[in-house]
């Protein structure tokens, strides 16, 4: 019970920290939308004159983009930045002496950030969706349940990928290059900017085995009802396996990072 409370405290502190800087908070939120505006218009132009592409019509596409925006807002740049920051400012030393599991603490903090930012993004997104009158929500409660589960999987998967890339900061001086690479890879292979069903066969096969697709493609296709119900269970099983694998991979990298820290003295 006490252990749980310890991590809950991290979640609450993170909410406070995220909202601590007023202007930055709102700008972080706005910046989530900006890159999607370009993508949105690009797709709109693509869909004028084509009613169905890659098995999706314009309505599907809008719903897809909405979920893509929402899932990417749950873990924004600021959470990603956190891990690398504490490493390059040397603050990691302080965090290491605390009696908490670093990985779990980071996860709790990311949850806190996600609550503070994601809630607002979701609210704005839904409002926007209602205003334009698009996005057909899942029809049945079961579909909703699957969708929410998929969002949870998405969150954990993305956290682990971000965290693992963050840990590489131990071996580099600035986190920027890696974080760009991470963003490029996740955006592309998760289907954030272009649905996986558009990919040519070989590329889709690659994307299907990688963990990234759980971040956007799975929740988004469930939301718009394009993932056949028969495949949902198998998909979740694969995602769960990936989460377990990534969780232990992160532990392993952490182990090596600690060896490096103790040699170089942080």
């Amino acid at each position: 019970m006490l252990t749980f409370q310890k991590y809950l405290r991290h979640v609450l502190c993170a909410i406070q920290e995220t909202t601590a800087y007023r202007a930055s908070y709102f700008i972080n939120i706005v910046s989530q939308f900006v890159s999607y505006i370009a993508i949105f218009f690009l797709w709109r132009a693509v869909y004028t004159g084509n009613s169905v592409i890659g098995g999706m019509d314009w309505n599907d596409m809008q719903g897809y983009l909405l979920i893509s925006l929402f899932t990417s807002a749950l873990i924004s740049g600021s959470s990603e930045f956190r891990v690398s920051r504490s490493i390059w400012t040397g603050n990691i030393a302080v965090e290491l002496v605390r009696p908490v599991d670093y990985q779990k603490a980071n996860f709790s903090i990311t949850v806190g950030n996600g609550i503070a930012e994601g809630v607002l993004v979701a609210a704005i997104g839904i409002l926007f969706a209602l205003l334009i009158g698009f996005a057909v929500p899942p029809a049945s409660p079961a579909a909703w349940l699957c969708f929410l589960l998929a969002v949870a999987f998405s969150f954990i998967t993305k956290f682990l990928i971000v965290y693992i890339f963050g840990l590489f900061t131990f071996w580099t001086t600035g986190g920027m290059g890696l974080s760009w690479l991470r963003r490029g890879l996740t955006d592309f292979f998760s289907g954030a900017i272009i649905p996986l069903s558009f990919f040519p066969g070989w590329l889709k096969a690659a994307a299907d085995v990688l963990p990234f697709r759980g971040i956007v493609s799975v929740p988004a296709t469930i939301f718009i009802g394009r993932l056949p119900p028969s495949q949902i269970l198998a998909t979740f099983a694969v995602e769960a396996a990936w989460i377990a694998a990534l969780w232990w991979l992160a532990r392993l990298i952490w182990h090596f990072a600690m060896r490096k820290v103790t040699i170089h003295g942080g």
Binding site: L12, I15, Q16, T19, A20, R22, Y25
Partner: peptide, 16 residues
């Protein structure tokens, strides 16, 4: 000037 707690943080967000 900030008041403590999550509520204080949220309040500062809207009325700094």
């Amino acid at each position: 000037l900030k008041k403590p707690g999550v509520l204080g943080a949220v309040r500062h967000l809207f009325r700094p």
